[in-house]
Design a protein around this nucleic acid. Structure first.
Length: 276
DNA sequence: CTGAAGACCTGCCTGC
DNA sequence: TGCAGGCAGGTCTTCA
């Protein structure tokens, strides 16, 4: 389901519903998703202090009055993970794996049909050293992600530029949809070797990646099949796709047909006339 | 080292 | 109608 804009949208939706709420009960319907789940019963009686995001990970800051070492509940939505906030009485839905009952009578439910999602309960002061975070590249919307950085990361690399911008070790949050969309806007062919792109064009690529992600966040994410917000409302960025999912349709810019290829096992969409 | 491919899992759509 | 096959927003592991 989620790339960076979708996770950010989920975070923004959950923040007002969870901040300063106490978790009074945890019901776990299975012991593992992609990986074994941590002992979530440890969260009973604890308070959520903030809902943050790093890359595509949701971070729930947990306050523990009994110890000085704060913990963070880290949650990755995988492909189909969703969080919903419902009245506590609402019955358990299909593929609903975990339920957190809150002090205000609401409950936070995690649903995930494919179970590619995963979670961990980590010490806040050890977060950055954890394997999930240690090798992550910069946030695309931060100042660290600039043309100087990207040019260095791309130098000498023969891998297709699409694979490189999707590599979380280089820059986080650019998934399959926004990779195609960004390369279209930048006029760069997705199979072009990353190391063979001029600095001027990389400058444009940085600009459009930030632009595309920002616009998608402002639109509340993209809705494809099953992405919904905490309140069940859809995102609207899918209406703005220029190439993603449009193979065989006409390019809005030049009227040629949009193509689809497979790169690293993922579909890529592009216009062979507009992108070089 | 790099890059490609397979693995994880279920659901949905297409075409025969 | 039924069923096989392909495909899906992510990331980790394995292999060349």
């Amino acid at each position: 389901m989620p790339e960076l804009p979708e996770v950010e949208t989920v975070r923004a939706g959950l923040e007002p519903l969870l901040t300063d709420r106490d978790i009074i009960g945890v019901i776990c319907h299975r012991s593992s998703l992609r990986y074994p789940l941590p002992d979530l019963s440890l969260l009973q009686g604890k308070r959520v202090k903030a809902v943050r995001r790093r890359a595509k990970y949701l971070l729930f800051d947990i306050e523990d009055a009994n110890t000085e070492r704060a913990k963070v509940l880290v949650w990755h939505l995988g492909m189909t993970g969703q969080f919903h906030v419902l009245p506590e009485q609402a019955k358990c839905g299909l593929h609903e794996h975990v339920c957190f009952n809150l002090s205000d009578g609401q409950s936070l439910r995690y649903r995930d049909a494919r179970r590619f999602g995963y979670a961990g309960l980590l010490y806040a002061d050890k977060l950055e050293q954890h394997a999930w975070f240690a090798a992550l590249g910069p946030e695309p919307l931060s100042d660290t992600f600039g043309v100087e950085y990207l040019a260095k990361a791309c130098a000498g690399r023969k891998a297709p530029v699409k694979n490189v911008i999707m590599d979380a070790g280089i820059v986080v949050g650019v998934g399959n949809i926004y990779a195609s969309e960004s390369l279209f806007r930048a006029g760069i062919h997705p199979t072009r070797a990353a190391g063979r792109i001029s600095t001027e064009r990389l400058q444009l690529l940085v600009k459009v990646i930030r632009q595309v992600l920002r616009e998608a966040i402002d639109a509340g994410g993209s809705t494809i099949s099953d992405f919904v917000h905490a309140d069940g409302k859809p995102g609207y960025f899918a209406h703005s796709f220029q190439v993603y999912g449009r193979q065989g349709e006409r390019c809005f810019a030049c009227d040629k047909l949009i193509k689809r290829i497979s790169q690293a096992g993922r579909s890529t969409f592009y216009c062979s006339n507009c992108q070089h």
